[in-house]
């Protein structure tokens, strides 16, 4: 019962998001009427094209490829980044050492990594995965590091006074604190993963949605280009709002309790 109440409220809050999307659609329609269908197909034409390509086997395969690559990249980046970041957070020396490294890696544009990945991995799915990992790993690393470094020492002393060992303290104090630090990093990573994968696929011509995008561009099939873009955006939104946000809402209900209108259950 509580779950349905929460789910209902979550879906209801989607109205606000839908309003924003409709504003974009209105602006898009305006631009379409100004430039004409050849430059910019209308939202309706694009949606029709989306409906056409969605059931097609080539699209399903391409979307699957892109999904697997970005998911692999996401999992690797989040896994390795969080783990190493958390470990580094426990050591002052590692923290000092790694902060500039992270800054430098974040400063390199993803496009540069794609070029390097192409040289190292050739035209295979690996280059897309690697680009995602390198582009997204520092964010999780920084999140893990800050999370552990800013853990509450007072709570730690409290737990030690009850004789809690290192592992128990990590599990009951550091991990919940870490999660609140990591969520923003994870949502950013999820968004980046889709975008970077498509970009890498397009440039390395290794299939997936990026590959289809390259083909559609070569054929000047503008509605298909738009449809593919809309599909990618939809996937990114879906990952964030259907997966990550509900998860965070479940995990971080206590935060709502601190808000002025109190806990909603």
């Amino acid at each position: 019962m509580a779950f349905f109440g929460w789910a209902g409220r979550y879906l209801w809050s989607a109205w606000a998001g839908a309003c924003g999307l409709l504003c974009i659609a209105a602006a898009w329609q305006g631009a379409h009427e100004f430039y004409g269908s050849f430059i910019l197909p209308s939202p309706l034409e694009t949606l029709r094209e989306v409906a056409v390509i969605l059931p097609e086997p080539w699209f399903v395969r391409a979307a699957g490829e892109t999904a697997i690559r970005s998911l692999t990249g996401f999992a690797l980046a989040v896994g390795i980044g969080t783990l190493t970041g958390a470990v580094a957070g426990y050591s002052f020396a590692a923290m000092r050492l790694m902060r500039p490294v992270v800054t430098v890696i974040l400063g390199v544009p993803p496009i540069a990594w794609i070029v390097l990945a192409l040289i190292w991995f050739g035209s295979s799915g690996g280059s897309a995965v690697m680009t995602v990992v390198v582009a997204a790993l520092p964010i999780s690393f920084a999140g893990g590091l800050e999370g552990v470094a800013t853990r509450d020492r007072a709570l730690d002393a409290m737990a030690r006074s009850f004789g809690a060992g290192v592992w128990l303290r990590f599990r009951t104090l550091t991990v919940p604190h870490l999660i609140s630090y990591l969520f923003p990093a994870w949502t950013t990573t999820a968004g980046t993963a889709w975008k970077v994968t498509v970009m890498a696929e397009l440039l390395s011509n290794t299939g997936g949605i990026g590959g289809e995008l390259a083909t559609a561009r070569a054929l000047f099939d503008i509605p298909r280009v738009m449809a593919l873009i809309v599909a990618v955006v939809a996937f990114a939104l879906l990952t964030e709002y259907a997966l990550l946000h509900p998860l965070r809402d479940r995990l971080e209900r206590w935060r709502e309790a601190g808000l002025p209108w109190g806990v909603k259950r």
Binding site: A154, L155, A157, M158, A159, S161, F162, G163, A164, L168, T172, L173, P176, E252, W254, G258
Partner: peptide, 27 residues
């Protein structure tokens, strides 16, 4: 032994019930 600190030092993500149980859980 048990310690009562100057500040409550409760875990903000646990309800009062689970905070009271925290020491038991650690034991």
């Amino acid at each position: 032994h048990a310690v009562v600190f100057q500040e409550p030092r409760l875990l903000p993500w646990l309800a009062a019930r689970d905070n009271i149980a925290y020491g038991l859980r650690m034991n």
